[in-house]
Computed example of a mutant assay.
Amino acid sequence: MLLKYLFPPSLFFTATSLLTLASMANGGLAEVRGKHVQYSKFFGVGSQGSKASQIMLPTRAAMVIVYTPGFLNGVASFLLFPDEGFRFLLLKSAITIHFSKRVFEALFIHKYSGKMGLDTLIFILVSYLVSTASMIYSQHLTQGVPEPPIDLKYPGIVLFLIGVSGNFYHHYLLSKLRGKGDNEYKIPKGGFFALVACPHYLFEVLGFWGITFISQTLYTFSFTLGSTLYLMGRSYATRKWYLSKFEDFPKGVKAMIPYIF
């Protein structure tokens, strides 16, 4: 059934795709169980400590560092694979736009408190470095291979643009919650925050599904499905955190998917 929507994968990327999906799904389950990736409001919550985690970096600088490899992979792909068709051009552009937006947000939009451990930085950096390189190279391997019977790249463009713009908008709303020197968390308001605790995750997932529709490779599909499961776990933990911290947090607000989850 998937072959109607995806390019036939190589054996290597089939195995890599399954490992990526399993790893990210396990990460989402760990978030639900209280073992969190250590940044933002979950810094120091459910951690088990290590020598590397005791090396702390300012969060703004750390987030710029973790997003930069994905951005550089996107830029490098234009030089390494310059003329490999419209679908590949769309994929390279989407990856570059997504990570350039994240670097921009880290530098100029987000309001941070606290720091990030070196082990967390390395974990996220390697994840983005490997995943973007794998998306790009798996797309390169489709050159000369017949297109999938069902072409999803044009719906993918629309979905990606909705995702990237919605994600940016809700990150902007989050940034306006705090004034200068204010490190206190507040209940987010505006936009889809009336429906879900983490609309920025919802739109990030939509953006990744847009990239998957553009790419139509098994690796990108697996990465996006894994990211969806991980962010569902992270959003579940976030909603639970809001409920524990704020007595007036609306009980009807779901975690990530309006009215459902």
Results as ranks from 00 to 15, higher is better:
His140Leu: 08
Ala133Ser: 13
Phe249Asn: 06
Tyr219Thr: 00
Leu173Glu: 05
Arg234Val: 04
Asp151Ala: 10
Val130Gln: 01
Gly163Ser: 07
Val145Phe: 03
Ser244Arg: 11
Phe193Met: 09
Gly190Trp: 14
Ile187Val: 15
Leu129Trp: 13
Phe221Ile: 00
Glu204Pro: 12
Ile157Trp: 01
Phe223Arg: 02
Ser215Cys: 12
Leu159Asp: 04
Ser127Asn: 14
Asn183Pro: 02
Thr238Ala: 12
Ile150Trp: 01
Pro149Glu: 11
Gly144Tyr: 06
Gly144Asn: 12
Gly156Ile: 04
Phe213Asn: 00
Glu204Asp: 15
Pro188Cys: 08
Trp209Met: 06
Ile214Pro: 07
Tyr185Glu: 11
Ser215Arg: 05
Lys153Trp: 06
Ile136Gln: 00
Tyr169Ile: 13
Val126Tyr: 00
Gly163Thr: 06
Phe203Arg: 05
Ser244Pro: 00
Ser134Thr: 06
Leu195Pro: 12
Ile157Lys: 10
Gly191Pro: 09
Ile124Glu: 00
Lys240Phe: 08
Leu174Ala: 07
Ser244Glu: 14
Leu141Cys: 12
Ile150Glu: 10
Tyr128Glu: 04
Asp151Cys: 07
Phe246Pro: 09
Tyr230Lys: 02
Leu231Lys: 00
Gly144Lys: 13
Gln139Pro: 01
Leu177Tyr: 01
Gln139Trp: 06
Ala194Arg: 15
Val196Pro: 13
Val126Arg: 00
Gly156Glu: 04
Phe192Gly: 15
Ser138Val: 02
Gly144Arg: 10
Asn167Met: 08
Ala237Asp: 07
Phe246His: 07
Ser138Gln: 09
His140Pro: 05
Leu141Ser: 11
Gly166Asn: 02
Tyr154Phe: 15
Tyr154Gln: 06
His140Cys: 08
Lys189Thr: 11
Leu229Pro: 02
Pro199Met: 05
Trp209Arg: 00
Ser222Glu: 06
Ser215Gly: 14
Leu195Ile: 01
Phe221Tyr: 08
Asn167Lys: 03
Gln143Phe: 03
Phe168Tyr: 15
Phe193Ile: 03
Phe249Asp: 04
Tyr201Trp: 03
Tyr230Ile: 02
Ile187Glu: 03
Ala197Ile: 01
Leu218Tyr: 10
